[in-house]
Write a protein that binds this DNA or RNA. Structure first.
Lengths: 377, 377
DNA sequence: GACACTAAGTTCACAAAATGAACAAATCAA
DNA sequence: TTGATTTGTTCATTTTGTGAACTTAGTGTC
């Protein structure tokens, strides 16, 4: 089996991509001798493979990387209907994708997953035997063992042992996680922030999600609630939110809220771009909606930067139109509300993502547990 | 010398107080056999001593604890004039306290410290030989090696290698840290939050400081700026702050700001209690100042809770009067701006501290580096 | 007070993990 | 072709930790 040193090595490779044995030895603080043995173990197991040779002065160095086909992971997003189900390899590449009907009943969900799994493996029969785990992304609070959904308003759950139920139905190791936190783990493991030790992800879907990676690990907070930026108050005494309090960011800057405010103004729009278009014609109401939303989101992100000084903010969005007024005002609001000393010091990276991002995040949760181990000290 | 296992053991003891060898073995995940050896090493070195016996069924367990006289630490606060200098032992107990004149010149500071050290040791000559380090608390940004002051507005510094300069003058290992972060380390090492893995400290002195402990370690942020809550915007477009932006918490809720606003109203007051007294007579202007300040601070803390879900918020204050209107409004504002699901889930602990808290924090920085090692991965 | 019972802590032979130094391998530069 | 240079392996040795048996120091009971 894998020792702690093997796990550490896998973590380093997952962070810093293909590395030579010597580089790994330095990164782990081990001798070349120890490294040699660890690498052989993992190559013999089929986890690592030699991927390219770097020529320089002296003996060329052989870069080792993860063998993508060593293990596969299923990821399911329970925040969409139908619920996307994807299969990805150890490199994070999606190799199959299907849908399943969304249910709110844990037993039904588990049964549906078990039923649909064979379809996911249809084109990749070799992957079935090498399945490393199932990951589930959902909206709500999850315990630190990534097994129990403590509470979910959307699914109307309270203390649901979802991971175990799915494990019983499928016989496969299963982990669940909050949607935004799943995206953060995805970005850390497979995305553009692999080598960042401290960053925050803000995910703009229908709602606003946020999660922090601190010291290279997902920070879940003491009750699993870190990153609940959507319910930060940005307009004290503002409009009531479905959470029960007032002036939450969610009521002003989420795509749902923006669209609802636009509909209330009588605009026919189904996406952000529609409203941006109307605003670009000079319509005051549309401009106002977008301006207010952008300022609010920017203020919240600025406060996040002040509070946590992350190395990077990654904003993932599933809608087009972030180059418009909303996005521009947001970026300005960040600039004006961050300590001048900091302004521009924290890169803000915008990335348009497809709506399978949550399923991919879910699969990443499974991959993380399989490869590096649970996210616990 | 001390191995990594010894350090881990010291960390556990510093967190969980006196423990028996068996308890330590469990806490470290080691065998009783390995534990036995580690404990003997540290007892022979004089770091640990047997402190009391617990009788139960079976052989009594002997609790081991740090030997407070094993090492001593000097702490100096550069945020006050005169600058307090304290000497404390490994248990965090202050055994001597003197003042030194505050200077803004690094060389002068180092010289003054070297000159005053003998006075600090006067009543404790045995401590001089056992000095484990010097810690300095200052207002500003410090690098992750706790050696260089990257920037300090108060001291008008930029890139000052203070630790090294003091080391050269005194021959003693020296570390510097931001004031609020020093308090956080103090509370983690010696205070009431020793066993908490995730908490934030909000320190109300003349200004507002804040620092986070995450996964048991001080989280400094990517540029050493984590916890800059004082310059979170709470009133967008509000009054200009000396930092260059507008509506910062610092302009509304710091003791300096409160007193200034009170003076602008023509009140003769030198401390919070004075204004509280005036407000308690029904004076609208005084009530307004305190209400506005309390709401703003409460809002910022609520946003901190939403953002980071800490296990505890410790508010340290050097002034009396936190039981009055300001404190009450603050607590209410926290409650109303936190997700109802969370409300009351995050304990808010208020603690009146004396003004030597920063010097004590500074000494704790030295103690932490000496005992557990640098705060780096 | 003798005896069993319980749990803490120690000892010791052994296993696992990492090291350091010598060495083999694979290239570039002259 | 030769030397320089750097990667990676091998192996004897050291360091670190384990498991099982053992010692120790008490409590509880008859």
């Amino acid at each position: 089996m894998l020792t702690a040193s093997h796990r550490q090595l896998l973590r380093v490779i997952s962070e810093s991509g293909p590395l030579s044995r010597t580089e790994m030895a330095v990164a782990l603080g081990l001798s070349k001798a120890a490294m040699s043995g660890l690498a052989r173990d993992l190559i013999d197991l089929g986890v690592l493979h030699e991927a390219g040779t770097i020529y320089g002065r002296g003996r060329p160095s052989i870069r080792l990387d993860l063998q993508p086909e060593w293990a596969f992971f299923a990821g399911i997003s329970l925040i969409q209907d139908p619920a996307p189900m994807i299969l990805c390899d150890l490199g994070g590449k999606v190799i199959a994708q299907i849908d399943m009907p969304l249910s709110r009943d844990p037993q039904t969900i588990a049964r549906l997953i078990a039923e649909r799994l064979p379809d996911l493996f249809k084109a990749h029969p070799h992957a079935a035997a090498k399945i490393g785990g199932i990951g589930i992304a959902l909206s709500g609070f999850v315990d630190e063992r990534q097994a129990t959904c403590i509470q979910s308003t959307l699914l109307n759950w309270q203390g649901v042992l979802l991971a175990q139920i799915i494990r019983e139905h499928t016989g496969i190791d299963t982990f669940i996680e909050n949607d935004a936190k799943a995206i953060a783990v995805h970005e850390k493991l497979f995305g553009s922030t692999r080598d960042q030790q401290n960053f925050s992800v803000v995910s703009l879907g229908d709602g606003i999600g946020c999660a922090h990676v601190i010291d290279g690990r997902l920070y879940r907070g003491n009750h699993g609630g870190a990153g609940e930026i959507a319910h930060c108050t940005v307009e004290p005494g503002g409009a009531p939110c479905r959470c029960g309090k007032r002036g939450c960011l969610d009521t002003i800057a989420s795509m749902n809220a923006i669209k609802e405010m636009a509909r209330a103004e009588g605009f026919a729009c189904t996406c952000l771009s529609d409203i941006e278009k109307i605003a670009s014609t000079g319509n005051a109401a549309a401009i106002n909606i977008l301006h207010r939303a952008g300022s609010a989101l920017g203020l919240a992100i600025a406060n996040l930067i002040q509070m946590n000084d992350p190395g990077l903010i990654l904003i993932t969005h599933t809608e087009d139109g972030l180059q418009g007024l909303f996005g521009t005002v947001m970026q300005q609001a960040i600039e004006t509300n961050v300590l001048p000393r900091y302004a521009g010091q924290t890169p803000i990276r915008l990335r348009r993502v497809s709506s399978d991002i949550w399923a991919r995040g879910a699969a990443s949760i499974a991959a993380h547990n399989f490869l590096i181990g649970p996210n616990i000290n």
